[in-house]
Design a protein around this nucleic acid. Structure first.
Lengths: 212, 212
DNA sequence: CTAAAAGTCAAACGAACGTTTGAATGGCGC
DNA sequence: GCGCCATTCAAACGTTCGTTTGACTTTTAG
């Protein structure tokens, strides 16, 4: 078959799948290339052949999952802004937040966990990856928030966006509210609550930092 | 010298100090016992002698820093509740939040970073430590929040508290708002903003999940 | 003063690590 | 068929890991 060229990426994707689950469970440093190769059912050398190094594999695992999510976010936001310009729909905090969070609900359940894991790794490993991956999205959504919060200074919006990301990461990491058990259900039911929570935090009328 | 008895714990604390900074910077798995011993200026075997294992050391590093913070939190909350009973001061969300967050501002700058780091490690390593360390405090503060939010269901409070912790952790981890640089300043100025943010999120009038 | 206990030390243990090598294997155009 | 190139493979590279050992030194207690 002339399509047989996909056998090539078969090994690649088996490695990516195995690496993803192991990175999520044990983190980067505590996951060995040998364990990944064994779980993927490939030769030990295949990882370095296809991804250059363990770090290269780590970055590839992340990009594969996050890029579709970010593309979806930007697409939703663009559609939203277009509808707002045409007057078909109003631009609100809630609609912006939904553009940001909803894409997380319709992807492989491993994705949220992977993002959460990434934020838990030491900065020296993740900072370049995270900045490259999220800068465009973060800027676009903060711009949108500025439109609906014209009375809030830009720096204040940056902070509130920062806290919003924190709440999200914490949910993604499934440091779930002590008591619940299942992970995907917790995430599914958590997103609407998360939106409620951060909507209130973002809307908060700005009155500077008032110490009593 | 007869005062030389403190030489004993000197080794212990030098190990704890060295381990703390290395764990914060590189995480648990990527920090070697050898690197800790070298940085502390002690023999390699001293770590296992004093703490049993690398994991034991990790837990000890964490407990040393967090227990005073938690004690301070509970002490402030108890004082607050006493004043409320006597009628001297009103129990408010803000006063509860201040009891929770303010103790973080007057401790060694390494403490916030250490807590943030702990939440980034794989759950298999940290879950038992975190539950043991924070269960009492979490329960006490959620009880207090229930008093000032009598109309909000208990489970809803658990979720909001959960998001609050997420915002805090994110601040502690200094995944600072992209743009700022210094770490301690960002944390210091971040705490009041964090209180404003989560106060709004916690106060949010409960109306279930209302989509538009 | 003396014996036990606590602490420190250099050295070594076996195991596991990320990566590299060079030969074997497979499909593809010619 | 033959040569080319990407891929796979077993094996080994040197390094580093957490922990243990047993001798040595210091502190403590009677």
């Amino acid at each position: 078959m002339s399509v047989a060229a996909t056998d090539t990426s078969n090994t690649r994707e088996r490695i990516l799948d195995a690496a993803e689950s192991l990175f999520i469970e044990h983190g980067f440093a505590a996951t060995s290339v040998r364990a990944i190769a064994t779980k993927a059912g490939v030769n030990l050398a295949a990882t370095n052949y296809h991804f250059g190094s363990k770090k290269g594999l780590f970055s590839a695992v992340f990009q594969r999952r996050v890029q579709p999510v970010n593309a979806n976010r930007l697409k939703r936001l663009a559609a939203l802004e277009h509808e707002a310009q045409v007057g078909k729909r109003q631009l609100t905090i809630r609609s912006i937040l939904e553009s940001f969070f909803e894409p997380l609900r319709y992807v492989d359940p491993g994705v949220p966990a992977l993002i959460g894991r990434m934020y838990g790794e030491p900065e020296s490993l993740t900072r370049p990856i995270l900045e490259e991956t999220f800068h465009e999205v973060a800027m676009a959504f903060q711009d949108a928030l500025r439109l609906v919060l014209p009375h809030v200074p830009a720096e204040e919006i940056r902070w509130r966006f920062h806290f919003m990301i924190g709440s999200m990461i914490h949910l993604l990491q499934m440091h779930a509210p002590l008591g619940s058990e299942s992970t995907h259900d917790a995430f599914t039911s958590g997103v609407p609550r998360l939106i409620d929570f951060v909507e209130a935090g973002l809307l908060r009328t700005h009155n500077g930092i008032t110490h009593d």
